[in-house]
Simulated assay, not measured.
Amino acid sequence: MCRVIAVANQKGGCGKTATSINLGVGLVKLGQRVLAIDLDPQGHLTLGLGFPKNLRVTLKNMMENIIMGIEFDPREAVLHHAEGLDVVPSNKLLTGMDMSLISVEEREMVLKEYLDLLRDEYDYILIDCMPSLGMLTINAMTAADSVLIPMQPQFYAADGLTELLKVIKGIKQRFNPELAIEGILFTMDASRYNNAKRNKQAVRSAYGEQMHIFENSIPRSEAIAEIASEGVSIFAYDKRGKGAASYGKLAEEVLHRA
Rank of each mutant, 00 (worst) to 15 (best):
A158E: 09
Q201A: 14
R257Y: 13
A144D: 06
V34R: 09
G183V: 03
S146V: 03
S103A: 14
E253S: 15
I227G: 06
V4P: 00
N22C: 01
A143K: 10
V147W: 06
L161G: 06
L185Y: 08
R75M: 14
R3Q: 14
F72W: 07
G248C: 05
I70R: 13
R107P: 02
V254F: 04
L115F: 12
C129M: 08
L136M: 14
R192T: 04
R240E: 12
A36F: 02
A77L: 05
I227M: 13
A223Q: 14
M130Y: 01
A158S: 11
M130P: 06
A158I: 09
D73W: 03
A144W: 08
K53Q: 11
S100C: 00
D40Y: 03
E113A: 10
Y156L: 15
M211T: 09
D189E: 13
L23C: 00
L165W: 11
A36D: 05
D145C: 04
P52L: 08
M1S: 04
R240F: 01
E209H: 10
G50T: 15
T19K: 06
L94W: 01
Y122R: 06
A157Y: 01
L185H: 03
F235R: 11
A18L: 03
L55H: 01
A228N: 14
L47A: 15
A225L: 11
E182T: 15
N139I: 10
N54F: 06
H80G: 02
R204T: 05
A245I: 11
N139M: 06
L179D: 11
L49M: 15
G231V: 13
V88Y: 07
K239W: 05
G243W: 01
T142M: 12
S100N: 11
E182K: 12
V232K: 14
S103Q: 12
M211I: 12
K16C: 07
E178H: 13
I102C: 07
N65P: 03
I102S: 13
V167W: 03
G48H: 15
M141R: 09
D238T: 09
G231S: 14
K112I: 00
H80L: 14
A228P: 03
P74K: 12
V4M: 04
E226T: 05
A77V: 05
V25T: 01
H80S: 13
V167D: 01
Q210P: 00
G96F: 08
G13Q: 07
A236W: 04
A206N: 07
Y193C: 07
L161P: 08
L136K: 06
I218T: 08
I184W: 05
E178F: 02
R204L: 13
V232F: 04
I168Y: 10
P153I: 03
P52E: 07
T46P: 11
Q32N: 05
H80Y: 14
L255Y: 00
G243K: 07
P89A: 08
R174T: 09
E226R: 13
V104F: 02
E215Y: 07
R107C: 09
L47E: 14
K169R: 14
M130L: 11
S217F: 09
L30D: 00
R192Q: 01
T17I: 07
A206Y: 01
L35D: 07
V87A: 00
L23E: 02
I218P: 10
N199G: 00
Y193H: 14
G231P: 11
L35N: 07
R198W: 08
L49C: 12
L47N: 12
T46F: 13
Y124F: 14
V147M: 02
L255M: 01
M141A: 04
